[in-house]
């Protein structure tokens, strides 16, 4: 649906995008992730035909963004960073302006406004001036504006910044729902957000791709080890030896404990699903009693930090 080939964008001496290529398939929700200044907004501006790339090509639904920009613009709904809106217009007036420009026939404009404002939870504020709305509602107006012509493609640049936690969750739910029928690119530097809503994640740093894949792929490919915490009643040294002897285990040490209670073992193992099971089995087989078993997965957060800081260090 969206194809980005070798896109480079320079602003004078600054290189915002450096030979970036990727693809978004129809119906996919892509999380576009990167630290501040990575070039996310710049990439979205190129896809939406706001500015051309210095080099490379972008096509949307088979239409080139340079030569066929009208076709591209008609298919995209765009919520720019910080949801810029005309503050002196009422929500209804604004949506009807966008609907007109988007080519919706005047007969069905009311109907579309009603549908989208319902979908975005704007019913109560429809007659208010946008300038008087709270940040969360403005963000929703921005989203409604992007959805009014029922586009195939939705591009959202940090749609949840400035929202309170409850609204963030609501917004994510909304995006998830929309993502079921549309192709979506969601820009963010907040990982849980992307992990919660996207099919696939693309991480860029300094305008270059550093990783891409499903959230699961990203965590398993880059995690070198998992940490396991186990509390086991039994002869400490004996237990430790038995654990260390297991296939997947890299190392095991005993956490200092006070008194006679069960010892806590900190285990480092290769990633895989069965380590916890093996430990449980071992304990049962040896008649040790197991009072706690916790496997800490490498979080996406770790992966992200690892990827983005590695790049910066090697620069």
């Amino acid at each position: 649906m969206i194809e980005v080939k070798n896109v480079t964008k320079r602003f004078g001496a600054t290189v915002a995008l450096d030979g970036l290529s990727f693809e978004v398939k129809k119906g996919e929700v892509l999380g576009f992730l990167g630290p501040n200044g990575a070039g996310k907004t710049t990439m979205m501006r190129i896809i939406t035909c706001y500015m051309p790339a210095t080099d490379g090509a972008v096509s949307v639904a088979g239409h080139d963004t340079l030569t066929d920009s009208f076709q591209v613009r008609e298919r995209i709904g765009y919520l720019p960073e910080s949801a810029p809106l005309y503050l002196d217009m009422s929500v209804a007036d604004y949506l009807s302006f966008v609907a007109k420009v988007r080519g919706i026939e005047s007969g069905s404009i009311r109907d579309r406004i009603k549908k989208t404002s319902e979908m975005c939870g704007l019913r109560k504020v429809i007659g208010k001036d946008i300038g008087t709305l709270s940040k969360g509602f403005r963000q929703r107006v921005g989203l409604a504006q992007a959805l009014i012509h029922n586009p195939d493609i939705l591009i959202l640049d940090e749609p949840t910044t400035g929202l309170d936690p409850a609204q963030i969750i609501e917004m994510r739910e909304l995006i998830k729902r929309i993502g079921k029928e549309k192709t979506v690119i969601l820009c963010s530097h907040i990982l849980p957000e992307v992990a919660a809503t996207c099919d696939r994640i693309l991480i860029i740093v300094n305008g270059k791709r550093v990783a891409s894949g499903t959230p699961d792929e990203l965590t398993s490919s880059s995690g070198e080890s998992v940490n396991i915490t186990a509390r086991i009643h039994g002869p400490k040294e004996d237990v430790r030896e038995k654990i260390s002897a297991m296939d997947m285990v890299i190392g095991c040490r005993i956490k200092e404990t006070r008194g006679d209670g069960p010892a806590t073992f900190l285990i480092k193992a290769k990633p895989g699903d069965d380590v916890g099971q093996d430990i449980f089995k071992m304990a049962v087989d040896n008649n040790f009693s197991l009072s706690e078993l916790r496997v800490e997965r490498v979080s996406l957060e770790d992966v992200f930090l690892q990827l983005t800081t590695k790049e910066v260090v090697s620069e």
């Binding site: 501006r45 035909c49 706001y50 009208f70 995209i76 720019p80 810029p84 988007r102 080519g103």
Partner: peptide, 13 residues
Amino acid sequence: KLKTMELLMTMPI
């Protein structure tokens, strides 16, 4: 100033 230019210019106008 409001950056609404970005929206205006990415609409089919």
